[in-house]
C-alpha cells in the first residue's frame, strides 16, 4: 500500500467486511463509487452519515427506525390487537413486503440457543409479555423460523403467555408456493402432511 492510496485501501477493507462482499468485489464497488463520485458516492456518504446519526431501535417493538417509537407502533391503524413476533428486523421487513399483516410487531433480537448461551433474559420476551398486558392484545402470531432454535423459542413464548387470555398462533409449515414435492426434504413433507386441510 502506498501513501497515495492508503485512504482508498482503507475504504476497500471496510467494504470487504460487508455481507456478500469479498476483497475483490469490494475493490470493484469502490472503483465504481470513485468513478460516480457526484452521482453515487457523495449522496451515499451523506445518507450513511445521516443514518449513522439517527438510526435506533424502537423502544416498543425493537424495529429499526429513526425515532424512539417506530412508525408501525405509532400508527393507530395498526392497533388491531395482533402482534406478530419475529426473530430479527430482516424478518419484520420480509413480513411487511408481503403487505398482508396489518397489526404490530415485536422483534425478539434472536432465538434461545444452548450453543450460544442465549437464554430468555437475553431476548425481548419480558417486554413482549408487558406489551400483551398493556396493549390489550387478542392474538400473538409467532412468525419464528422453522428451526429447532426457532421453535424452542416459540414454545417458550407460548408458555410465558399462558393464562393471559391471549390467543397464540404460529405460521403454517409445509410446501412453499412453487415448490415441487420431489425436491422437498422429508421433514418438510412430514410437516405439510401433519398440517393438511380439507380441500
Amino acid at each position: 500500500m502506498t501513501e497515495a492510496t492508503r485512504d482508498i485501501e482503507a475504504l476497500i477493507d471496510l467494504m470487504a467486511r460487508l455481507p456478500g462482499l469479498g476483497p475483490r468485489s469490494a475493490r470493484r464497488a469502490v472503483l465504481h463509487l470513485i468513478k460516480k463520485r457526484g452521482a453515487v458516492m457523495m449522496p451515499l456518504a451523506k445518507a450513511m452519515q445521516q443514518v449513522a446519526e439517527t438510526a435506533r431501535e424502537c423502544l416498543n417493538c425493537g424495529n429499526i427506525g429513526t425515532s424512539d417509537i417506530c412508525d408501525i407502533c405509532r400508527s393507530e391503524k395498526r392497533a388491531t390487537g395482533e402482534i406478530c413476533v419475529v426473530e430479527d428486523v430482516a424478518d419484520l421487513w420480509a413480513m411487511e413486503r408481503g403487505q398482508v399483516f396489518h397489526g404490530r410487531y415485536h422483534v425478539l433480537g434472536g432465538t434461545l440457543s444452548a450453543l450460544d448461551a442465549i437464554g430468555p433474559e437475553e431476548l425481548r420476551i419480558p417486554k413482549l409479555v408487558d406489551r400483551v398486558r398493556a396493549e390489550g392484545i387478542a392474538e400473538v402470531i409467532l412468525a419464528l423460523n422453522a428451526t429447532v432454535d426457532g421453535q424452542t423459542t416459540a414454545h417458550y413464548i407460548a408458555e410465558a403467555l399462558e393464562g393471559m387470555g391471549v390467543s397464540v398462533t404460529s405460521l403454517a409449515q409445509g410446501v412453499p408456493i412453487g415448490g415441487e414435492l420431489d425436491y422437498l426434504d422429508d421433514g418438510t413433507i412430514s410437516a405439510a402432511l401433519k398440517a393438511r386441510k380439507a380441500f
Partner: peptide, 18 residues
C-alpha cells in the same frame, strides 16, 4: 433422516432433543 420435524410441534420432545 430429519428428526426435527417430528418434535417441532411437541414442546416436551423438542426440549428433550435440545
Amino acid at each position: 433422516q430429519s428428526r426435527a420435524a417430528a418434535v417441532m410441534g411437541d414442546r416436551l420432545a423438542l426440549a428433550g432433543l435440545n
